[in-house]
Amino acid sequence: MTGKQRKQVWNAVQLTLIMIATFIMLVPIVWIFLAAFKTHVDVYQLKLFFTPTLENFSTVFDDPYRLGEKLFNSTIVALVTVIFAIPIATCAAYSFSRFRLRGETTMLVMILATQFVPAVVIILPFFVMFRDVGLLDTRLGLILVNLAIVMPFAIWMIKGFIDGIPMDTEEAAMVDGSSRLQVIWNIVLPMAAPGLLTAAIFCFIIAWNEFLFALILTNKNAVTLPIGLALFKGEEGDLWNLLSAAGIIIMAPMFVLALLIRKYFVQGMTMGAVR
């Protein structure tokens, strides 16, 4: 076998492995995608060719499912969470990165440690507290919970990006005549922008997909999309076609986001990794 042939064989092997991995990952999504356009009758058959229908999508937005409300709730909760989380986390991350604080390491580890606490453990205190202050089944309550979930993650991630900005650059800006705030606004934020965007998207995804807290802390007014899926388990059995249509609606923003930020995403991931 010549070197060229060996290379071709190796390429083929690689391609096959990638195809297998992709296939395994995509099968459920493809199934859902197909099911979303099938009728209730077709859904149990593994047909690749059928007459597609958009009826499922209109059904899920109608009574009694009213997915529109859940979509609205999810959007508000995830967006507001991100809008608050990123600026606050950036301030915290900048301080951790640039100032030597008393008990800094302990604080950072504590922040990280909150991530290790299983959600089920703290969900009861949350429920009791929210009941007492009237935050049960409100979007504000969910936003607060989501902030608590994404903040540690966002602080650590953004700190990584800010650590990667050379101190020289900031000091140059200070000597050039900037105040600390001007340094942050003119230099640090633009340079950390890919990182902030990455963190924002991660936070959005976490908040958008959050299930457990929304399940326990909401029941009617503030129900989000993931919880909404449970609606399609009716007396008639599982309504897979409707469930799939709702699933597509949940996934759609993720796909769009992934496409939009592909470039920054990779840049952000590697920028945090290598200083």
Partner: peptide, 28 residues
């Protein structure tokens, strides 16, 4: 503060602003 001392500094690692053009760097 450094900004009030009216000095200009050149750093070993240049300390340029990578997100700005050369013009904006010099103009900063």
């Amino acid at each position: 503060l450094p900004k009030d001392r009216d000095v200009a500094m050149v750093f070993q690692n240049y300390g340029l602003y990578p997100h700005m053009t050369i013009f904006d760097n010099i103009a900063y």
